[in-house]
Design a protein around this nucleic acid. Structure first.
Length: 502
RNA sequence: GAUCCCGUAGCUCAGGUGGUAGAGCAUUUGACUUUUAAUCAAAGGGCCGUAGGUUCGAGUCCUACCGGGAUCACCA
């Protein structure tokens, strides 16, 4: 921060800072004893008995100032809410003088008594006040109005998305609804941990730097370890490590994992994102489906106090049980015929008939995926489990116990996007090796995203992994649904951005 | 990666067919001891994203680049 780069307002604030110090004030003191949060005061004040709140202290950032000569009204914002402070020159003459050198954005502590103003707002009448931090840079100044219907109207909101994402700390200060979103995100994750911990499953940490990447189909980020002089990959998933732990004897493990995928960014994708994976021994995908339903509906209930939410203008009902549909039954509904096991050429013809855009050399798996993605997935608005996928689409899932050519896998779709993916885990090492080899040939044919054979993971399966059910949930998308946000950037505190000065 | 749109004061935005920049909030000065988008009076504040080009003259027209958004493609 050089003085040349500052505008007139900022230079003025530096001058105020100097004046404060000159008058013996430390503008950056070490601590402050606050007795209450703003919310605690607002929710516990009673007009009949204000006595319990006759001597409180609060701290927060000045977000509005209305000076009226020898009295001033101001709102300060703490982590819970805004609260109005009433300053009278008669009550604190020295601080009142000092207030000339305070601005919007400064942080202060206030001691006083709680009362209700003529206009009906619960406020603190200041008896003592302390500067806790002087702000040099200017905050945006949105104004809040309450119209006749009692609705909040925000004027001049800080709305520039680029600035909001790059300077999230400003966004959090001036856009209270964003703060709410991230509080909800934290609650959702805490609730997930609580649910799993109650059941005795172990939260574990597995490597982010992996010598081989696996557990999903995606292009990885590559980095280099100097001491070992080897390239390492940032994980695209933690699946293969968690399954090693099940082989190692843990019966329930989960990890909330940052994964990294070197692919495009849009409102559904950020290069680093959070995923939950959980593996439970001696269970299958049917059991896991019930667990998923219970977990997700419970999360919605905890946040909304209801199973029904509104997402992007659409009511979504998370009341269990969720709809369950076999994938090929959906295909049958769409096409009027059973396309399971059809040769590639026939599937291609079906796709063309439906107007699905698909490359003529696309694999069987790709064609099915395209038909599903373009024709079926967008209509899966209400929570729906899609069950039993073709084996080619699922190299880590166990073959179906009765259906030839399928695996025991389901995905949960809500509002047209995938929220969860789970299967009865493949634990036959011979089959797993064959699937990896199949992936290798797909890779050789030019698909960079096909899975890489992981010999050590196969070794773990050869040592023996019990029957296991596994589940992955995209945390960011789940948070989007539950908080009503339509862009992943609004549920990630610091979304990836291109650097400003390149 | 493709297409379209955007970039003007700290913030939100105006700036027909080219003629050296405007408003509200914020800031400064003054008035005001229950206001709440406080109000009233006055003042200051701009590399108009960057670099070229056309022109007597560019915020405005053209080109490239930088950054962002939306849609599509790719992708869980």
């Amino acid at each position: 921060m050089t003085e040349q780069n500052l505008n007139d307002q900022e230079l003025r604030r530096l001058e105020e800072l100097r004046l404060l110090e000159e008058s013996g004030i430390n503008p950056y003191p070490y601590s402050y004893d606050k007795t209450h949060s703003a919310t605690q005061i607002l929710s516990s004040f009673s007009d009949e008995n204000p006595e319990p709140l006759s001597n409180v202290s609060v701290a927060g950032r000045i977000v509005s100032i209305r000076k009226m000569g020898k009295a001033t009204f101001s709102h300060i914002l703490d982590s819970t809410s805004k609260i109005q402070i009433y300053f009278r020159k008669d009550d604190l003459p020295e601080f009142y003088e000092l207030m000339k050198n305070l601005d919007m954005g400064d942080i202060i502590g206030v001691k006083g008594f709680v009362f209700r103003t003529k206009m009906g707002e619960i406020s603190i009448h200041a008896k003592e006040a302390t500067v806790l931090c002087k702000s040099i840079k200017i905050l945006p100044t949105p104004k809040e109005e309450v119209d006749e219907q009692g609705n909040k109207v925000i004027h001049d909101a800080f709305a520039d998305k680029e600035l909001r994402y790059r300077k999230r700390y400003i966004d959090l200060i001036v856009n209270p609804q964003i703060r709410e979103t991230f509080i909800k995100r934290s609650k959702i994750i805490a609730e997930i941990r609580k649910y799993f911990d109650e059941r005795g499953w172990l939260e574990v940490e597995t490597p982010i730097l992996q010598p081989l990447y696996g557990g999903a189909t995606a292009r990885p980020f590559i980095t280099h370890h100097n001491a070992l002089d080897i390239d390492l990959f940032l994980r695209i998933a933690d699946e293969l490590y968690l399954k090693r732990l099940i082989a190692g004897g843990f019966e329930g493990v989960y990890e909330i994992s940052k994964n990294f995928r070197n692919e495009g960014m849009d409102k559904m994708h950020n290069p680093e994102f959070s995923a939950l994976e959980i593996y439970v021994a001696y269970k299958d995908y049917n059991w896991m489906m019930n667990m998923t339903e219970e977990l997700i509906s419970r999360l919605v209930q905890k946040i909304h106090d209801s199973y029904k939410i509104n997402y992007n203008g659409q009511e979504i009902d998370f009341t269990p049980p969720f709809k369950r549909v076999k994938m090929f039954d959906l295909f049958r509904e769409l096409t009027g015929k059973d396309i399971k096991g059809e040769p590639r050429e026939n599937l291609l013809a079906v796709a063309r008939e439906l107007g699905v855009e698909v490359d003529s050399n696309a694999s069987t798996m790709k064609i099915l995926d395209e038909i599903f993605g373009q024709k079926l997935q967008p209509d899966l608005i209400q929570p729906t489990f899609i069950i039993d996928y073709p084996v080619e689409m699922s190299p880590l899932a166990k073959k179906h116990r009765t259906e030839e050519g399928l695996v025991e896998r389901y995905e949960l779709f809500v509002y047209g996007f995938e929220v969860a993916n789970a299967f009865s885990e493949l634990n036959d090492p011979r089959d797993q090796r064959a699937r990896f080899e199949e992936q290798a040939s797909i890779r050789a044919a030019g698909d960079e995203e096909a899975m890489v054979l992981d010999e050590d993971f196969l070794n773990a399966l050869e040592i023996g992994m019990p029957p296991t059910a596994g589940l992955g949930i995209g945390i960011d998308r789940l948070v989007m649904l539950i908080t009503g946000e339509v862009s992943i950037r609004d549920v990630i505190l610091f979304p990836q951005m291109r650097p400003e000065n390149s």
